[in-house]
Design a protein around this nucleic acid. Sequence first.
DNA 1: AAAGAATACAACCGCCCCCGT
DNA 2: GACGGGGGCGGTTGTATTCTT
Length: 466
Amino acid sequence: MGRSPCCEKVGLKKGPWTPEEDQKLLAYIEEHGHGSWRALPAKAGLQRCGKSCRLRWTNYLRPDIKRGKFSLQEEQTIIQLHALLGNRWSAIATHLPKRTDNEIKNYWNTHLKKRLTKMGIDPVTHKPKTDALGSGSGNPKDAANLSHMAQWESARLEAEARLVRESKLLVTNNNNNIPQALPHQLGSANTNPAHHFINRAGGAVAPPPCLDVLKAWQGAWTKSSNSNNRAECNTLADMIAMDDLESPTSTLNFPDANPHHSFPNMTHVGGFGTTNTTTTTTTHDIHHHHQNNGVESEHNVNGWKSCYSTTTTPTITKVVNINDHHHHHHDNNSHMVAPPTPPPEFKERNMDTTNTMSLQDIAFACTDGGAWFVDGFRAPGSGGAGDSMAVPAGALSNIMEGFADVFVYNPDEPNSAVAAAGENSSNGGGGGDGSCGASGIFEENKSYWNSILNLVNASPAGSPVF
DNA sequence: AAAGAATACAACCGCCCCCGT
DNA sequence: GACGGGGGCGGTTGTATTCTT
């Protein structure tokens, strides 16, 4: 036998709510709370069933509901979470404050799904459609790149999901974020991906990934939107400046006396076309010591510079004017050779102020075709240590390119978008408008896959994500 | 200007899970 | 442990609005 209906439906009104009905419902809930939904309509004087009242309240009348256009960040979050969670709208909604699952679901069905389809990406699997590879973008090169990304992403998601799960166990076992030893400190034989968290100041906490990655994204978006100049917020400097960075997305916090110290060790791999020199910093998180062909140089995280010797622990000095010191490079006229520089649009990006690292942070593309990899990660064939996470061969360039425009792409301000995937872009650079045309579509694809990398971070403890 | 198509969004429906009894 | 009510969830439909021809 079927279930009995939630309430007696005969004579009950259906369809759109009138302002009067809304007022009655609001007034009643404000005074009494909703209590039992089943009993509410009679008490509130409404000819509706309790379920209808509940839906009207939760999806529309609730005071903490944000209405209106979805921001870029919200869109990205939805897409990312959907890639991981599928149609679990309520789970997705928990990471989009003030948005209801119904609204997100509708937005997905009416906007995002279509847009992904248009980009040649299957909105269900979040992978490029097979036929799209050949004909979707009209550009075989784009399709090939996309295929690489998909291939790599698939393997990666698997590994990272494992990482997240294991990290949770670690955190649990360590009693609420008591600092843990890093793989380097534990011994190098550990190949468990769960140990690949970024080093922190003092070699202390290696927190599990969480939605603080998205927090950083959303913070940047919000900040730049407020200043009406998103382009000003494309670098970590802008994010660092956001001491008031609020997280609407994550409930996890990892205490750190000085979050500005939370930067990774990095290793430069490849570059300069000749010697695949790999030099890893081992001392300071905020300073990236760097050597090519025996010549030393450095990369510094925003706001810091070093007075270093080439062989000893550098002395780190906070730079007063952080905007002047995105990177400190010695030019070719000095005794130093200019190191390969990350394209400006993603220098220092994603090194957030919130004590977490995005998986995107494993690498920064360099103009020489090489890349900076955060400790514990390496490019294929780079011969990294046993505790490195390898990137499948063939994927590196795609990864590098994938780092480009997530932050800066703004469909409302096409000219502000950094469409090309850095100076080593292989698809011809594309136009500045990431919102239309084959090139634009490809840029969106890169951004898309890039952003999915963050998904494995997107599981605050206790969330329904995993 | 009007009709039809497309889009956007609110609301409904039915299934399922949780929890109290 | 079984049962039933309440509420959550995801899929779908209905309707208003906007766009296109």
